[in-house]
C-alpha cells in the first residue's frame, strides 16, 4: 500500500515534468530554450516514471529492462539535443523558409550576429 502510494507520487511528479516540458516546447521562443524544456521532460520526467514503475516490478529482469529503457533514452535524447542545438547554431534558417524563421526571433538574431 505504501509502495503504491510512492509509485503514484513519483509518476505524478514525472507527469508534471512532461507537462512542463510540453508547455516549454510550445511557449519558449527559440530552438535552444525549447530543447532545454524537451530534455527536462525526457530525462527527469521519464526517470521519475521509471523509478515509480520499478517499485512495482515483479522481478529483477523487469527492473533491468526498465533501467535499460531509461539509460538508452538518456543517451539518445542527449545526443539528439546536441545535434539539433548545433544545427540551430550553424544553419539557423536551413530547414524552413523565411516565414517560419521570422517566427523564431532568437534564431534570426543569431544568424545576423554570425553574418556581422
Amino acid at each position: 500500500m505504501l509502495v503504491d502510494g510512492i509509485t503514484c507520487a513519483l509518476i505524478g511528479a514525472g507527469l508534471l515534468f512532461f507537462w512542463a516540458g510540453t508547455a516549454g516546447i510550445i511557449r519558449f521562443p527559440d530552438t535552444h530554450s525549447r530543447l532545454h524544456a524537451l530534455t527536462k521532460a525526457d530525462n527527469v520526467g521519464l526517470g521519475l516514471l521509471i523509478v515509480g514503475l520499478a517499485l512495482q516490478a515483479p522481478d529483477w529482469l523487469t527492473l533491468g529492462k526498465l533501467a535499460m529503457v531509461w539509460a538508452l533514452t538518456l543517451v539518445a535524447a542527449g545526443t539528439t539535443a546536441q545535434l539539433v542545438a548545433r544545427a540551430a547554431i550553424t544553419k539557423p534558417a536551413a530547414r524552413r523558409g523565411p516565414a517560419s524563421t521570422a517566427a523564431i526571433p532568437g534564431d534570426t538574431v543569431r544568424s545576423k550576429d554570425r553574418a556581422s
Binding site: A76, T79, L83, R86
Partner: peptide, 13 residues
C-alpha cells in the same frame, strides 16, 4: 563529436 560517440556506443546494443 557527439554523433561519432553515439555511433560507437549504440551499435553493440
Amino acid at each position: 563529436g557527439v554523433m561519432a560517440t553515439f555511433g560507437r556506443l549504440l551499435p553493440p546494443f
